[in-house]
Nucleic acid binder design. Structure first.
Lengths: 212, 212
DNA sequence: CGAAGAATTGAGGTTAATCAACGAGGGTGG
DNA sequence: CCACCCTCGTTGATTAACCTCAATTCTTCG
């Protein structure tokens, strides 16, 4: 999909691969923006902290996504890995000189804005169960490539802790846990272990997301 | 036609000028994206509706801002005027051919993403009073060019109804009204009429935003 | 085996939503 | 000009949703 050479005709300083363990900070808020990153494999969370420790995660990025782009030379948010992750790092000054890279980045920014719009609706207007249902639906869609179909059921894995999901959905971890329990009780999802595979009945799930 | 100089933020707007009265729809969700717009004067709100009527406004744009950019040829959100507004419309196909325009748009997208990040924190993690305080602080900052200083006090005008503010902040109009009343009672803001000038004591306001 | 981390569940409290009444302009038509 | 209506805002009473605090279980890991 992406060919480094395309963006670095000179051949010097192409996308440098970097690996990070799970739950590792790649970028801290306020840092000078020296590089732009592309997720090669794994998942990266973007978040912000309020001074008193409240956290809001606003996006979870998968392979192909771009992060570290900023309008003013300083990162405005925290980027940390969720899973074992490989990123490709592009030096900012080099990247900015390449029109092809600029277009590529711009396309990703547009998609990111749409995702942020949807997330704003979720945070501002959806109930706890609707938020968790929307989250699960996103999981299903994100894993649609390698999903396992069983009639109406789809098997997904939940890669985040309840606490992380809570910070993503603007809830507390207890409320997230209760919402999962309710969905399980109502036969919308089923699972043995919280960190094991979860079977999703998406025909029952979709009406609960508030979006449809 | 397209003149690179015209796309710089300082430059006067090129593109086709179009005027809209207050509270007029410029773009509806789902419309094919034929043009990109730049606000010349006035204010434009971006929002989405859930099927049951719940609305979330995620951004209020002032002069210089860009909207109508989309990754997939369909508008993902509603754009409507808040006040009497003039926009400059650029045909999409034409705009996409101009590298200078592309860079200009990309810069705005980056700024927009930062604003959406802050708004996600507000929606997900702030209390009602913190949200309203943050909103007022934004008003102060947006009007900093022509603000009237009186010692600690700054005079601003609130251009949105309580209902619009509620849809922007993820609250109900009653909660917004109560938050304004509380800030007034506590001497953080003062005003005679809700649609008249409001004096803001920003030294008292800032600690209430949750951000500092 | 014990400790630590994560999830679940319950009880109770708090915040914001809901339901409802009322009041202050602004516009319109008689 | 005034009566009426309509929109908008404010405020009160009540309800519901979510948060907080706390106890317990489960799993993993040393």
């Amino acid at each position: 999909m992406i060919d480094d050479v395309e963006y670095q005709p000179e051949g010097s300083a192409s996308g440098r691969p970097v690996d990070f363990p799970p739950r590792t900070t790649i970028i801290d808020e306020g840092e000078p923006a020296r590089a732009i990153y592309r997720v090669v494999s794994g998942r990266v969370m973007l978040s912000k902290l309020l001074p008193d420790g409240r956290r809001q995660i606003f996006e979870v990025l998968g392979p192909g996504a771009i992060f570290g782009v900023t309008p003013n030379g300083k990162h405005d948010s925290i980027a940390e890995t969720l899973t074992e992750t490989r990123v490709a790092a592009f030096e900012r000054v080099t990247a900015e000189r390449s029109p092809a890279f600029g277009i590529f980045v711009a396309d990703h920014l547009k998609a990111q804005i749409c995702a942020l719009h949807d997330h704003a609706v979720l945070l501002g207007r959806k109930t706890a169960v609707e938020r968790v249902a929307s989250y699960i639906l996103d999981l299903v869609e994100a894993s649609s490539a390698d999903q396992t179909h069983n009639g109406d059921g789809v098997i997904v894995r939940v890669p985040m802790t309840r606490s992380e999901i809570a910070d993503y959905l603007g809830l507390t971890l207890e409320t997230v846990s209760r919402a999962f329990s309710k969905l399980k009780r109502d036969g919308v999802v089923s699972y043995e272990r919280h960190d094991g595979p979860m079977r999703v009945h998406f025909r029952r799930l979709r009406p609960l997301t508030g979006t449809f």
